[in-house]
Design a binder for these strands. Structure first.
Lengths: 145, 145
DNA sequence: TTCTTTATTTGTAATTCTTATAATCTATTC
DNA sequence: GAATAGATTATAAGAATTACAAATAAAGAA
């Protein structure tokens, strides 16, 4: 299942002028296997032993390539660094204000919001982004102790 | 109307241990009067002549104070720098992918999304954030020429 | 009003994340 | 296998934000 969408991503890349390199493949693989939403640095560090000579720039370069190809999304929060997420099915994110944990949250797409925004503003709407903030169960427990 | 909510903000601050300084007041004033969603640097530059000696650090410090007091929201997009917005009534933002313009979009709060997220994830939900992306009318015209 | 306490401002340095650049390397095509 | 274009690497540069310590000023009490 993860590997299926990984292969899909690879073929999407091949269809444009993007070459498949070991580093690139590893970054994609990591993104697809990780249920978390890693930062560029997370990715860099986790591939450090497999690719001791890999540069941080490679990670950033490739994340941009993936973003341009539409197979990866960048998530920016108040935090310093961006996080990256594979584009798979429609889901939103629930984020803990305390520890930063991100949990996927499946919910039907808010199409009507897009339609209304289109009418009200005259924009050609392409996309939207929804995040829900709160405190996760662990952090809630901790604070009550 | 703008001044009413400004005074409200001032009294919210006074209720905690926050002192009112000219710089602080000017930043608040600017945030309330500006219909755009300025960056820290926008604020700094616009107050430059009134406060030639003001430090950028002051702007950042106060934006954090306002955020902590809940009277200002930080908006982070893919762009490099955060934007800041007064917390007034329920509204969302429609953002142009081309020129970065931000338009306010009034829409009933998505309470049911919060409720569902609470049930599904076990989080204590506090807040959510929705943004809608597209191309504004001007940029659409430009691209068609 | 003047004094005292404590928050705030300032200026600068430091940090952090991200991008630019140029040289080297390598995947792909012929 | 050689040529060509794209990728990687290493490093430097850039931009946004924060940390810090000294100087300043707001708010309440005497």
């Amino acid at each position: 299942m993860a590997s299926a969408s990984l292969q899909e991503a690879v073929s999407v890349l091949k269809s444009t002028n993007v070459r498949m390199t070991p580093q690139r493949h590893a970054i994609l693989e990591f993104l697809h296997s990780s249920m978390s939403h890693p930062t560029a640095d997370d990715i860099y560090k986790s591939l450090e032993e497999r690719f001791p000579n890999m540069s941080v720039a490679t990670v950033y370069n490739n994340l941009r390539v993936f973003k341009d190809a539409g197979i990866v999304k960048e998530l920016t929060y108040g935090d310093s660094s961006s996080r990256f997420d594979c584009v798979t099915s429609d889901h939103y994110h629930v984020i803990c204000n305390d520890c930063g944990k991100i949990v996927d949250f499946h919910y039907p797409g808010l199409d009507e919001v897009e339609t209304l925004a289109e009418h009200v503003t005259g924009f050609e709407i392409e996309d939207h982004r929804l995040e829900i903030y709160g405190t996760c169960t662990e952090c809630t427990k901790m604070s009550k102790q």
